[in-house]
Design a protein around this nucleic acid. Structure first.
Length: 586
DNA sequence: GCCGTTTTCGGCCCGACTGTTTTCAGTCG
């Protein structure tokens, strides 16, 4: 029997939180379920296994009660409490929660007093002007409901976009605001930074947050609507403005005095859960953290912080990098001292996955090699697609032999960088690569990926990729889960099984840096390192400009808490080559 | 429901906004 996945368990806990909230539970109990759901979702190890082993309460946020509910779910597939609550509250009531202005309390009141149990019955009641008869509801609420339903419920939660799109717009906005500040002649210049999930380098972004530290921010706030990226904007208060980009993203500007900039940047960078946990810790120390300062109960004094580091220092923590602020383990670790240094772009000494005109790339081996050398890389593996299910030009075995020669020729022409003859081979449905072993043995580096039959069932897909890790000449697995952020679910591979097989065989796992992939994800990358597998971070570039995406892979690794030593292409090639299983086997 | 520099009970982040209400509950980020 397939074991219950972390995401299934997390989903069940989230649902329980929603149901208890409707049921009128105290907010802290509801929050406890949501925190537990997040802890499960972010866990790099199997929660089902942990629960069966009696160790699940080791996770922060899971106690004896939730342990039992998780065990029920894992062992019987059901949670009795959830079933009882579902009988009391039709699914349509939960669907109403989350509409603008409707939380659990109001949804429950509408359900109990007017029997509203679906979007349809909500709309009917609004049109019939019956909602205003309920205490706490009025005419404006009815209009808001009708507007929401008219716009389509799907339109209400704004679409999330991958980080690269949000970052491009955010950097444009910040750049223009800084230009404007210079034109205004501010002295000292205003501090203007991106905050929010963009600064945390999250996988996908809902809206953009920009923070300003300035004595007189009015002119900057008023300028938002004039920026190239902004379609419409307006002031929302003396210290804030809100606009919308031409792409439909909401941009929030917040301003404070320069000596509070650290407080605001910390507050607006979040995450919400990180901030809540930080503030709970502060309260235990008699301190109250907000975007305006840190109030000390003992003295009645509010400390204003020009930098974030001061905020963390006041609550007894070492500085926490934005990428880690997700309320995973970072507060506990920061209380214990300084973090090990996270991997950085400048640590990467070579790229082991790129394409040329031989398959679906747009540039030649020489062009790609020159560009990689110019970026300071010591080595570059040319890994065009293999022959089956071709991308652009199918690289037949004979063509691959010629390609190996071409790589050697180009390598001789390019001093300062080592070009490696490689291939991105397909993992066929039976788990084998699509070149013969004698040909693979002529290559310096082989990365193997799934490009077909994405729909295979979990056991078969897992067997398929695990089989590939067992091949002596496959050095790494490319984009191991196939997920596309916001567009395609990962294929049904058991990540624990894959990590175990990769660690046992010495097969490396890729963090593919394409911003639509970032695969392994941060959670899976953490699982991989936890399970003893080695990581490589690659661009999968299809042109020389494609090398730029490596920063997204780096950010995924940093969000996973990876240090340079966990990432094998921080090594010189000779050292890395010596660790490959094809070498170690000899 | 969890958790401990308040340790087996009594707490549990902070501020802004909205609509409805005459002082605030609920929602939101």
């Amino acid at each position: 029997m397939a074991q219950t996945s972390n995401s299934t368990i997390a989903g069940a806990l989230d649902e329980l939180g929603d149901l208890y909230e409707l049921d009128g539970a105290v907010v802290h109990r509801v929050v406890a379920y949501r925190n537990a759901a997040k802890a499960v979702r972010d866990s790099p190890v199997s929660i089902a296994e942990l629960a069966v082993a009696g160790r699940v309460t080791e996770l922060a946020g899971i106690g004896a009660t939730l342990e039992q509910k998780i065990l029920d779910l894992v062992q019987t597939g059901r949670i009795p409490a959830a079933e009882r609550l579902r009988e009391r509250f039709p699914a349509g009531v939960l669907a109403i929660v989350g509409l603008p202005g409707i939380g659990p309390k109001r949804a429950r009141r509408l359900f109990e007093e007017l029997g509203i149990d679906s979007l349809e019955s909500l709309g009917e009641a609004a049109r019939a002007e019956r909602l205003r008869g309920v205490r706490g509801f009025g005419e404006k609420f009815e209009q808001s409901v009708l507007a929401t339903l008219a716009a389509g419920v799907d339109a209400s939660p704004r679409r999330r976009v991958p980080l690269d799109r949000a970052l491009a717009i955010g950097e444009l906005v910040v750049g223009e605001l800084r230009d404007r500040d210079r034109e205004l002649g501010s002295d000292p210049p205003a501090r203007i930074e991106l905050a929010g999930s963009v600064r945390r380098r999250a996988e996908s972004i809902k809206d953009l947050d920009v923070v300003i530290g300035a004595a007189d921010p009015a002119a900057l706030l008023d300028a938002l609507g004039e920026l190239a990226a902004i379609e419409s904007a307006g002031r929302t208060s003396a210290t804030a403005a809100r606009g919308q980009t031409h792409t439909g993203m909401v941009v929030e500007l917040r301003a404070v005095a320069a000596d509070q900039f650290g407080n605001l940047l910390q507050h607006m960078t979040g995450s919400k859960q990180h901030n809540a946990a930080l503030r709970e810790r502060a309260v235990r120390m008699g301190l109250h953290v907000s975007e305006y300062g840190v109030l000390d109960d003992a003295t009645g004094e509010t400390h204003r912080c020009a930098t974030e580091a001061e905020v963390y220092e006041l609550v007894g923590l070492s500085y926490i990098e934005p990428e880690l602020r997700e309320n995973r383990e970072e507060l506990r670790r920061a209380a214990g001292g300084v973090f090990p240094r996270l991997v950085e772009l400048s640590d990467i000494r070579g790229d082991l996955h790129c394409h040329t005109v031989a398959s679906d790339g747009r540039e030649t081996i020489l062009e790609m090699g020159r560009s990689a050398a110019a970026r300071g890389y010591e080595y570059l593996a040319i890994t065009d697609h293999s022959a089956t299910h071709g991308f652009g030009n199918d690289v037949s075995p004979d063509e691959l032999r010629r390609q190996i020669e071409k790589v050697h020729e180009a390598d001789a022409k390019l001093p300062g960088i080592r070009l490696l003859a490689g291939s991105e081979v397909n993992i066929l449905p039976d788990g084998s690569p699509d070149y013969d072993d004698d040909l693979l043995a002529e290559l310096d580096w082989v990365i193997a990926s799934v490009h077909t039959s994405f729909g295979m069932a979990g056991d078969a897909m897992t067997e398929r990729i695990v089989a590939a890790t067992g091949h002596p000449l496959i050095d790494a697995i490319g984009h191991p889960t196939g997920r596309m952020i916001g567009r395609r679910e990962p294929y049904a591979v058991d990540i624990d099984a894959l990590v175990g097989a990769a660690a046992a065989s010495g097969t490396l796992l890729e963090i593919n840096s394409n911003p639509n992939r970032r695969d392994l994800s941060e959670v899976n990358a953490r699982a991989a390192v936890h399970g003893g597998a080695g990581i490589v971070i690659n661009s999968d570039a299809h042109s020389s400009g494609g090398f730029d995406v490596l920063r997204y892979g780096i950010w995924t690794a940093r969000r996973a808490g990876l240090e340079p030593a966990a990432v094998l292409n921080t090594l010189a090639w000779d050292e890395l080559a010596g660790r490959l299983k094809r070498t170690r086997r000899d």
